[in-house]
Simulated assay, not measured.
Amino acid sequence: MSEHQHDHDHSDHDHGDDGPSDDLVRRAGHIILDGVTAADVDNEDAMELAFGRLLEIDAIEVTMDEDEGELELDISPLMSGVLLVVTELVNEIAERDGSSPEDVLARIRTRIDG
């Protein structure tokens, strides 16, 4: 199995009151990084494949509420994976620059607003 292939097992998808399992969040984080890699080489097929895996691992769940006749979308595992990746990157930048995560976030906010 390659570094970017992650096995899929529904038994570890605990979406209880505590949110998604740590393993599901880790897997979603890896897929986000795979998508960044695909975007870097400007390969839409690879990016679509990477992000399509989010559905496979249930990081995005679409269900039908039969009573209401509405689709329900749960992206909490995806968002937890994104938060994991962003937090790691912010901490890495702070450590590299000898600053704090708060300073890094302030610089990023300034760039977003700029």
Rank of each mutant, 00 (worst) to 15 (best):
G98N: 09
V82H: 03
I75Q: 09
S100Y: 07
L71A: 08
D97A: 14
E88T: 12
L83S: 15
M79K: 07
S80R: 13
L71D: 03
T87K: 11
D97M: 04
P101Y: 09
R96K: 14
L78E: 00
V90P: 13
G98K: 08
A94K: 06
L84C: 01
I75G: 00
N91M: 11
E70F: 06
L71T: 10
E72K: 13
L84S: 05
P77V: 11
T87R: 14
L83V: 14
G69T: 04
G69K: 11
L73H: 12
D67I: 09
A94Y: 01
A94C: 12
E70H: 10
L89C: 05
R96T: 14
V90N: 03
G81I: 10
L78Y: 06
R96L: 14
L73T: 08
I75F: 08
T87G: 11
L84M: 14
S100T: 15
L71V: 05
L73S: 02
L84N: 01
E70P: 00
E92Y: 01
I93L: 10
V86W: 02
G98V: 09
V90A: 02
D67V: 15
N91G: 13
N91P: 05
P101D: 06
A94G: 15
D74E: 06
L78T: 15
L84G: 00
A94N: 09
P101N: 06
S99D: 11
A94S: 07
V90I: 13
E70V: 13
L84D: 06
S100G: 11
